[in-house]
């Protein structure tokens, strides 16, 4: 009983701490690495909740694709962060005032907030007990939610067509490698054997026929 609680606090505290570090670290590359750490810990929390599919998805999609893309973009862009931070002290009082107003508003709203007692009953669908997460999702994704699945496919098709329309250019001058032509080349096509008179070498007058 104590072990899950221990792991919960471990994952949760590292997650929050690395989220703070995402904002606090000076080097943007460190920020992205802390972001990855936060994602990994969040997926640990999902495992503790029994949502192993979501946990894997978080790692595959967010860490594997999104965070790496972030890293790539940050390394490609040469953002001058010292310039961005210029005038920080100058704007600080104004920012603090606005922050304080927001905080006061949030406190007022949260103070007057009454949760509908029926809400917690209705928000979670029943979790199937006899199958794994992945299987449970698969069972409804291709049957009950087939229309969402197909439509999402159409959205991805549009994204693909769009990427091709906007970036593909058929350049005329580009020399492309044509494997067929290369393979069809044989010694007869590629070279010519000539008799060369002793002591004379090749004549410049023949230069045109040397290079085909």
């Amino acid at each position: 009983m104590i072990l899950p609680a221990l792991f919960f606090y471990l994952f949760a505290s590292i997650c929050v701490a690395s989220a703070v570090m995402v904002i606090a670290s000076r080097n943007p590359v460190h920020s992205v690495l802390f972001l990855i750490l936060a994602f990994v810990n969040a997926s640990g929390l999902f495992v503790l909740m029994g949502a192993e599919f979501l946990a894997m998805l978080l790692i595959v999609v967010y860490v594997g694709a999104v965070a790496v893309l972030f890293l790539f973009v940050i390394m490609m862009l040469d953002v001058d962060f010292t310039q961005l931070r210029e005038g920080f002290i100058q704007y600080l009082p104004f920012g603090l005032v606005i922050g304080a107003i927001f905080l006061a508003e949030l406190l007022l709203v949260a103070g007057g907030w009454v949760m509908n007692p029926n809400v917690t009953k209705s928000i979670t669908a029943a979790i199937p007990t006899n199958v794994s997460n992945t299987e449970a999702l698969g069972l409804v994704l291709y049957t009950k939610y087939i229309h969402y699945f197909q439509l999402a496919g159409m959205v991805l098709l549009v994204a693909m067509i769009g990427a091709i329309v906007l970036t593909l250019r058929h350049k005329v001058k580009v020399r492309r490698q044509d494997i067929n032509v290369q393979n069809a080349r044989n010694p007869e096509l590629a070279m010519e054997v000539r008799k060369v008179a002793t002591g004379q070498g090749l004549q410049d007058a023949d230069a045109g026929s040397w290079v085909k």
Binding site: H147, Y148, L151, A152, V155, V158, A159, V165, L166
Partner: peptide, 23 residues
């Protein structure tokens, strides 16, 4: 709401591309 969102994205994504079609 899910159908609404999917329809909206399908519509808009194509619109973004045609807006830039004179690239």
């Amino acid at each position: 709401l899910i159908m609404l969102y999917l329809g909206l994205e399908l519509m808009s994504l194509a619109l973004y591309v045609v807006a830039a079609s004179n690239r």
